[in-house]
């Protein structure tokens, strides 16, 4: 099981990614909907409360596609297919800075602790990390730099 790093600690993950072929969608569960599912069933899902409605974006999926619905989500997870694939960094900034997303922005997939500082500066505030991640190392990596040369997202 991966660990979820949030606000400097490992926490219990309240969100679950919905299987693309799930037959039933429980009302009360905090679910991350894969983008194709959201787009296909948007009309029905709009009725859900934002506090338990989230989106799962893959590396090649465009944040533009959920721009209009952005405030209906309590959580957006951006999936990094490999740690060398930096598209998610742009995706994070777009969601925060262009579309004004204020919920939990979660980096998931193939990320590692040494990317945490840059991820946070791109707007992410929750990070799914491998099970054996040391909390001390993760905290050090998050705070690797105290000064910056360019404007980006400030940590919430």
């Amino acid at each position: 099981m991966p660990k979820l790093l949030k606000a400097g600690s490992f926490t219990i993950d309240a969100w679950r990614r919905l299987d693309a072929d799930a037959a039933r969608i429980a009302d009360g569960d905090a679910l991350l909907f894969p983008l194709p599912v959201w787009l296909a069933r948007r009309d029905a899902l709009l009725a859900r409360d934002s506090s338990h409605t989230g989106i799962w974006l893959n590396g090649d999926e465009e944040p533009e596609q959920i721009a209009a619905d952005i405030h209906r989500f309590g959580c957006i997870a951006v999936n990094f297919p490999t740690f060398m694939d930096g598209r998610g960094f742009s995706c994070g900034r777009l969601l925060r800075e262009r579309y004004g997303f204020r919920g939990e922005l979660r980096a998931v997939g193939d990320i590692f602790v040494d990317q945490l500082h840059f991820l946070r500066r791109c707007g992410f505030d929750a990070f799914e990390l491998p099970d054996d991640t040391s909390l001390d190392t993760a905290r050090n990596c998050l705070d690797a730099f105290s000064v910056h040369y360019q404007a980006a997202c400030n940590p919430a």
Partner: peptide, 14 residues
């Protein structure tokens, strides 16, 4: 140089 140094978005370009 300053802008590009540790630019958080562009450390994992193609």
């Amino acid at each position: 140089r300053r802008w590009s140094t540790f630019h958080p978005e562009f450390a994992y370009l193609p």
